[in-house]
Amino acid sequence: MSVDGESSVAEVIERELRLLTPAGRSSRALAEQLLDPEFVEVGSSGRRWDRPSMLAALPVMQGAADDGPQYVASEMTGTVLAPGIVHLTFETMLDGRRSRRSSIWRKLDDESGWRMYYHQATPVPDA
């Protein structure tokens, strides 16, 4: 991977981790900066989310409270698929539930920076 590719992946990982924090989930302003205008998610419940519904729900979802369960991410890796497109895969634990996750981030311009375009979470059944 090129130096540009490595720095893109590192920046996207930092932004993904920010979205997993209580501060990132409870701050609409921060979430608006990190979610692409065309954002779509298929959640672990199977529900399809668009940007407005996600922005409204994030502050009350699990992982948004400092004194509640919080996401723990692991095995995060990224690949540059094309200029301005990064794909991340990782796992999370939240309140004893494990999920495998995949995010596609895109960078349309330097002003808005990297934004999450697509996210999918798949629950991992108990062993």
Rank of each mutant, 00 (worst) to 15 (best):
S2K: 12
S2T: 15
S2Q: 11
V3N: 11
V3A: 08
E6P: 05
E6T: 15
E6Q: 11
E6I: 09
A10I: 06
E11K: 09
V12D: 07
R15W: 05
R15N: 15
E16Q: 14
E16H: 09
L17A: 01
R18N: 01
R18S: 06
R18Q: 13
L20M: 01
R25I: 01
S26W: 02
S27F: 05
S27D: 08
S27W: 00
S27Q: 03
R28N: 02
R28A: 01
A31C: 07
E32T: 14
Q33E: 09
Q33S: 14
L34Q: 08
L35F: 12
D36P: 09
P37I: 11
F39V: 04
S44K: 01
S45M: 08
G46H: 05
R47C: 07
R47M: 13
R48K: 04
D50Q: 10
P52E: 09
P52V: 03
S53W: 05
S53I: 02
S53M: 13
M54P: 05
M54L: 02
A56V: 10
A56H: 05
A57Q: 13
A57T: 08
L58M: 12
L58D: 01
V60E: 00
M61N: 12
G63N: 00
A65F: 08
D67G: 00
G68Q: 06
P69T: 05
P69F: 00
Q70Y: 01
Y71E: 00
A73D: 04
S74K: 10
E75T: 07
T77F: 02
T77K: 02
T77Q: 14
G78E: 04
T79K: 09
A82I: 09
A82D: 14
V86A: 06
L88K: 02
T89E: 00
T89I: 11
T89K: 10
T89R: 15
F90C: 05
E91T: 00
T92I: 06
M93W: 14
M93H: 10
L94R: 04
D95G: 15
G96N: 11
R97Y: 04
R100E: 08
R100N: 09
R101W: 03
R101H: 03
S102E: 10
S102H: 13
S103H: 06
S103F: 03
I104G: 06
W105R: 12
W105G: 12
K107F: 01
K107H: 07
D109P: 02
D109A: 07
S112N: 13
G113E: 04
G113N: 09
W114C: 10
R115M: 12
M116S: 00
Y117N: 07
Y117P: 04
Y118T: 06
Q120V: 13
P123R: 12
V124K: 00
